[in-house]
């Protein structure tokens, strides 16, 4: 990604400034190593991790990002569950799934808050949310009917769940010094993936062209310059051997079968890609003010 843009995004993140002092204090309690140190010990090529270039997040940074994302999703589903009668389809399974997802997100917030607190870190205070994307009516809405049109709600739910999957995938590398936190993050990552798949199957049941996993064949539900970042770099057609090799895996030459669609469809579907923290911030920023 554009390094200057990354730096600008980081500079604009208010928590970096307001919580600097408390984070410094917490780092002593955390006994943990920044990603820069890990990168020095286990050289990670920029070619393998283009989106992580320059990212020197700590365990605490990563957990705070995760809890903010969980807080946002918890607020999103909680608000949907208070929507007017008729918002949810007649088939009770739809609402039931959203009830379950909201409960999980609430549990995730509580769990991450416990972990952060036990390390003397601060849990971020809740921002104001506007899930229409209008930032409290100061700009055009992205999802004007998000809590009155169920399909519009599902589209945003899909974008947020897929963002969560990608966000957790990106932060695990900053948690490698702590087995408990690493495994917890992987289990959270897995729950978010199940949510995302269920949201996608719900959309499909309602006629959308979408698969349970991100596919180049999915109908595009993003807006250029706004929500497009959710799937930017997700449909990678090439996978590299892990560092230090970093050479492309020649899927076409391997005994996989599958015809013409192997590289354009099956390979992108078979892998979920990480999304760097700065991009996750951009997405969260669309719905907070």
């Amino acid at each position: 990604m554009d390094i200057l843009k990354l730096l600008a995004d980081l500079a604009e993140t208010p928590t970096d400034l307001t919580q600097l002092a408390s984070r410094r204090a917490a780092l002593d309690g955390l006994r943990r190593v920044g990603a820069k140190t890990i990168a020095a010990a286990l050289p990670l090529s920029l070619a393998a991790l283009p989106s992580q270039a320059g990212d020197t997040r700590t365990v605490l940074d990563s957990l705070q990002l995760a809890v903010r994302l969980e807080q946002l999703q918890n607020a999103f589903y909680s608000r949907a569950l208070t929507s007017a009668a008729g918002f949810f389809p007649a088939d009770a399974n739809f609402r039931s799934s959203i009830v379950k997802m909201q409960a999980h997100q609430q549990q995730h917030v509580a769990l991450l808050t416990r972990i952060i607190s036990s390390s003397n870190g601060d849990t971020p205070t809740l921002p104001n949310y506007d899930f229409t994307g209008s930032k409290n009516n100061t700009q055009a809405s992205l999802f004007p009917n998000v809590f009155s049109n169920f399909d519009e709600f599902l589209r945003l739910a899909q974008l947020l769940e897929d963002t969560s999957v990608r966000a957790y995938k990106a932060i695990v590398e900053f948690l490698v010094q702590d087995n408990y936190t690493l495994q917890t993050a992987l289990q959270l990552h897995s729950t978010e993936a199940r949510h995302a798949a269920r949201i996608r199957t719900m959309r499909r049941l309602r006629g959308a062209v979408v698969k349970p996993w991100p596919s180049p064949t999915d109908a595009d539900i993003t807006i250029a310059g706004r929500t497009a970042v959710v799937y930017a770099t997700e449909h990678a057609t090439t996978q590299l051997l892990p560092a230090p090799a970093n050479t492309p895996i020649p899927f076409r030459l391997l005994p996989i079968g599958s015809g013409a669609n192997l590289l354009t469809q099956s390979v992108p579907e078979a892998f979920d890609e990480p999304l760097a923290a700065a991009e996750v911030e951009l997405i969260m920023g669309l719905f907070t003010y």
Partner: peptide, 26 residues
């Protein structure tokens, strides 16, 4: 994931792990 020692291998496994979870949910 926690049993791996090389971060690049963890990232490689994580890329397919969430797809497995999506398969399971389906």
């Amino acid at each position: 994931g926690k049993l791996l020692t090389v971060t690049a291998n963890l990232l490689a496994l994580a890329k397919i792990a969430s797809v497995e979870s999506r398969h399971a949910a389906l």
